[in-house]
Write a protein that binds this DNA or RNA. Sequence first.
DNA 1: CGCCCTGTTGATACGATTCAAATATCGTGG
DNA 2: CCACGATATTTGAATCGTATCAACAGGGCG
Lengths: 244, 244
Amino acid sequence: MGGVPEGNGKVKRVDVGEAWTGVADCRQCMIRDAVLFAGLKEEDFSHFHRPIDQLVYHSGGRIYDSGDKAETLFTIRSGLVKLTQYLLDGTARIVRLLRKIDLFGLEVMIDDEYSHTATALRDTEVCRLPVDVVRRLSHANPLLFNELMSRWHQAMGTADRWITEFSTGSARDRVARLLLWLSEKEEDERCELFSCEDLGALLGLTTETASRTIAELKRKGFISEPRPNQFLCDTPNLRRLVGM
Amino acid sequence: MGGVPEGNGKVKRVDVGEAWTGVADCRQCMIRDAVLFAGLKEEDFSHFHRPIDQLVYHSGGRIYDSGDKAETLFTIRSGLVKLTQYLLDGTARIVRLLRKIDLFGLEVMIDDEYSHTATALRDTEVCRLPVDVVRRLSHANPLLFNELMSRWHQAMGTADRWITEFSTGSARDRVARLLLWLSEKEEDERCELFSCEDLGALLGLTTETASRTIAELKRKGFISEPRPNQFLCDTPNLRRLVGM
DNA sequence: CGCCCTGTTGATACGATTCAAATATCGTGG
DNA sequence: CCACGATATTTGAATCGTATCAACAGGGCG
């Protein structure tokens, strides 16, 4: 439950992969109000036959691969995770981006394998929830059941935004919408970006176009970069730019 | 429960909107094995305090609008329905296409308004399920609970395909993937298309490009049109074209 | 019959991709 | 700590594909 390594997006290590950082005490969880288990009653915790592991993945670390045998879902305590899907011709497309409090790997409730490849885009803290625990609890506890439904609903909403906002319109519009999306959940209007390759895979553009577009927005004053990979967004003007 | 009007995509009537065609007897439903209520036991049907209405919407008929107060979800008995989402600048994007057996309006389980605009693309038969019935049953019946989860999961999978297949690559690839998707669930390799405007809104293209691309595929022999709006797909070659 | 809507086709302009090269950055080992 | 090699980013120029604008054909409907 220690400090989160600063994810500045530039961290790249060879020892990618996970590091176990303890057993979660959900009863004491700092973000518990916001997470899946918010509605649990004291007695429910007795159903936890296995401990909930907490893990840290370094930037670039693979959390799971599409097709991997699935036994756990994940909730994010901090960081950023991408879900990637591959077309049969090899091209990759990032279909979702997940942040603090978000749940991913939900498909294990239904399926026995993951449907995407999940990768940490910054250093990321997650809790790993065994699917059988969640299944058992969701049958017993109507609140958790509703919370699960609600998560599915949320995920659908995000997927729809992906289609309408990040796959429609000019490169400039898409990048602008992404910047707005990224700064949406930040207190200030700051945001960090990730590699141009990822930007491209997310917006359906080439890395070159992504780079050029960022440069153009910087030149025109819509964003500034006081420190490397720390972008300040002129959100009102960005919003105007995309007609929001 | 009568015959389904032939939806040839050319039918356009002024009297769009719904027509009540009877009360569904779910116990006797012909497609019951495949629908939401497949797992219900005899006793469960006693929970139906309100009848399940069956309706027909004509091609072009609006089923609900984004933001409408929501009290029912729908299941399709026959036909084709599009879900549209609008960007704030007015451009529309079709985010899903629903067919026989598909469920839509699932968001009412969580939300009190619909998140898309639903429109029949051909004459379409639906059953209208009151959300309170489904809610009550889903708490009582674990099979229905699972079925609901499974539907969310399915919907997510479709949304992801929308991103990777219908919003990525050249116009030709997108149209080809759509043709394959449409003929996927047909016995033969026949499929009907809809207006070029809808094609564009679905694939993120202009109507002109949609039209040109269809023409090109026809010229090159990937598809033929023996009767107006009855397309025969050379699926093996289409598949090769998009690298599947 | 003429109007409106949809689909089709053509010419042109714009924007994104592609290929190539230069530059900047990171991680490594000397 | 610095220098190096590998990797990512940036920029340029040419090409390709799609959007745009405009004109026209056909069908349904008043």
